[in-house]
Simulated scan of single mutants.
Amino acid sequence: MFLLLTQILLWLLITIMLYKLFKEIIPKEYFTLIGALFLFAAIAIGFFSPSNQLVSSIWHVLSFPLKPVGACILLLGFAMRKGLDKSKNEVLAALLILLLSSTPLVSNLLAQGAEQRAFTAQEAATRSAAAIVLIGQGTTQPNIPPRTQIQLTDTGDRILYTAQLYRQSGNDPLVIVSGGPRSNLQGSKEQNIEANDIRTLLVNLGVPESQITLDTKSTDLRGAAEASEKILRERGLANRRIFVVNSAVNSNRTRQTFKDVGLANVIAKPTGFFRFQSGATSNNQKATPPTFQIDSLIPSVEALRVTTRVFEEFLSSIYYYLRGWLAPGIF
């Protein structure tokens, strides 16, 4: 009952915030009942069909003001509308958000908070599993002109790590590649399915094609978990140990999502860490405290990117919680 009440209160809070936001942006004569119904319909569709491409676009628009760059643009837009001489507070707030979110010291602290729960020392030491699930959506770019090969994105290290885990396991685990259709791609069906390109790369990295199974429909984490659970149950592996490879900032939500669909023996195998502990060693010895560097106070685009990724993961965790897919306190 407490969980349900909390979810209802959060939904009411989000609705009120969106209403206030749109009321400020849209003139009253245009903010009609039809507009309100359209907004409600968009939220409802996003709730029940999160993988829909139109819903994904709407979600990106609605969540934009909740990210650092979006918040800055929104505040500056309010300032321009009211007049700069009357909007010093808004301009100052936008500058402060941009400064903090692009400072490496701040982005490192945020990344540390998101990544420190990625896995335990015992999980890190585990070398073998019955299956490895690769969350592959968004890890590659297709081989279409002017490219001359399949390219990796900034999350492409998941593919390399999956191949490494397969070689280390020594027991020929099943490899499930989750990667559905790419959005806004004009090309053949073979090129449009990202899992096909990931399979090609894994084979080139030494993973036998006979050990690779594709999930060609899922475009989000929940869909990947449900599809993987079905494949594993059909092969009698649902109760065996499962590795799930995803970026470190997403690993906590990944583990809980896979457990929520009925895969109890799940071990997160994160990669793509934004932050590392200075002085840490590969054999899990106690690390020395990180040293302070003056560069950590100089704003950078990379730090802004890291902060944005952490905020995106936080917003996704809230959505998963509202859907009842995450337990309270998981984010």
Rank of each mutant, 00 (worst) to 15 (best):
residue 24 E to N: 14
residue 275 R to H: 05
residue 36 A to E: 06
residue 117 R to L: 12
residue 81 R to S: 14
residue 324 G to E: 01
residue 74 L to G: 08
residue 221 L to Y: 00
residue 119 F to V: 03
residue 64 F to W: 13
residue 268 A to E: 04
residue 52 N to H: 05
residue 14 I to A: 15
residue 281 T to G: 13
residue 225 A to W: 03
residue 66 L to G: 11
residue 290 P to S: 15
residue 322 L to F: 02
residue 291 T to S: 14
residue 10 L to Y: 06
residue 73 I to V: 15
residue 158 R to G: 07
residue 135 I to V: 13
residue 249 V to P: 03
residue 238 A to H: 02
residue 327 A to L: 14
residue 253 R to W: 11
residue 261 V to F: 08
residue 320 Y to M: 10
residue 127 R to V: 15
residue 136 G to E: 00
residue 109 L to Q: 13
residue 145 P to E: 03
residue 139 T to H: 04
residue 218 S to F: 07
residue 187 G to C: 11
residue 191 Q to L: 15
residue 138 G to T: 06
residue 127 R to A: 15
residue 244 V to N: 01
residue 39 L to K: 04
residue 207 V to C: 00
residue 220 D to I: 05
residue 202 L to G: 07
residue 165 L to Y: 05
residue 300 S to E: 05
residue 323 R to A: 11
residue 286 K to L: 14
residue 63 S to T: 15
residue 131 A to L: 12
residue 298 I to H: 07
residue 90 E to R: 14
residue 61 V to G: 08
residue 233 R to Y: 03
residue 136 G to W: 01
residue 8 I to F: 14
residue 35 G to D: 01
residue 105 L to I: 09
residue 151 Q to Y: 11
residue 203 V to D: 08
residue 88 K to C: 04
residue 323 R to E: 08
residue 161 Y to F: 14
residue 3 L to E: 13
residue 42 A to W: 12
residue 72 C to N: 01
residue 299 P to K: 01
residue 81 R to D: 09
residue 115 E to K: 09
residue 126 T to S: 10
residue 22 F to C: 14
residue 193 I to L: 14
residue 179 G to C: 13
residue 1 M to V: 13
residue 50 P to K: 00
residue 34 I to T: 15
residue 131 A to D: 08
residue 279 G to C: 02
residue 12 L to G: 01
residue 153 T to Q: 09
residue 181 P to D: 11
residue 163 A to I: 06
residue 59 W to A: 10
residue 204 N to F: 03
residue 13 L to W: 07
residue 149 Q to R: 15
